[in-house]
Design a protein around this nucleic acid. Structure first.
Length: 171
DNA sequence: TCCGTATTGAACT
DNA sequence: AGTTCAATACGGA
């Protein structure tokens, strides 16, 4: 059984993103028009004291997510809410490593593999990037192929190109 | 256990 | 400069 997530929209000039929260933080972020199934919504929160406290917490995180997303889309640095992406240890170590890539810089899949102490796991790193549930804020778009070419992107290569360009990079 | 993957680098045209 | 190919770690079925 999947954990229950609270789902909230974020309107930006690039369209409406969808954020989902666990009790520990931001768990997922969808691009506009991503066709992903709904997993929960605000109305399902009951009215006991714990739930309303949790909802207030989530709304606070959501404000942080909104500003972080908008700033990142504008190509500037931002403070993130707590993240609670679900995945294997390997995937989480890849996502952790991607978060260390500074704005406007890139790493190759091989370099990420090396950085997490698993230098031969280059393809697995690609897999973990594709499984990243929080694109943009966990900057999977800053990971390129070794020849400095684009590689792939689950949200569509146009997004990857665009995000890098906003950070001041060309190819 | 088998298959696909957002790879890589070398060895070939 | 393009194509093929083996090696490779991981995750899903």
């Amino acid at each position: 059984m999947k954990r229950q997530l609270v789902e909230l929209p974020i309107s930006t000039s690039d369209g409406q993103f969808i954020a989902r929260y666990s009790e520990k933080g931001l768990a997922e972020l969808d691009f506009p028009n991503a066709n992903r199934r709904r997993r929960g919504n605000e109305s399902q929160i009951s009215e006991d004291e714990d739930s309303s406290r949790r909802l207030r917490q989530i709304k606070k995180w959501h404000r942080a997510t909104e500003t972080a997303l908008k700033k990142t889309l504008a190509g500037s640095k931002s403070k993130l809410p707590p993240l609670d992406a679900e995945g294997t240890e390997f995937q989480k170590s890849v996502w952790r490593e991607m978060r260390k890539i500074p704005l406007g810089r890139t790493k190759s899949y091989g370099e990420v593999a090396q950085a997490i102490g698993n230098p031969k796991a280059v393809r697995a790193v690609g897999g973990a990037c594709g499984a990243n549930p929080i694109p943009v804020l966990v900057p999977c778009h800053r990971v390129l192929a070794a020849n400095k070419k684009l590689g792939g992107f689950s949200g569509g290569l146009d997004w990857k190109r665009s995000l890098l360009k906003r950070e001041g990079l060309s190819l």
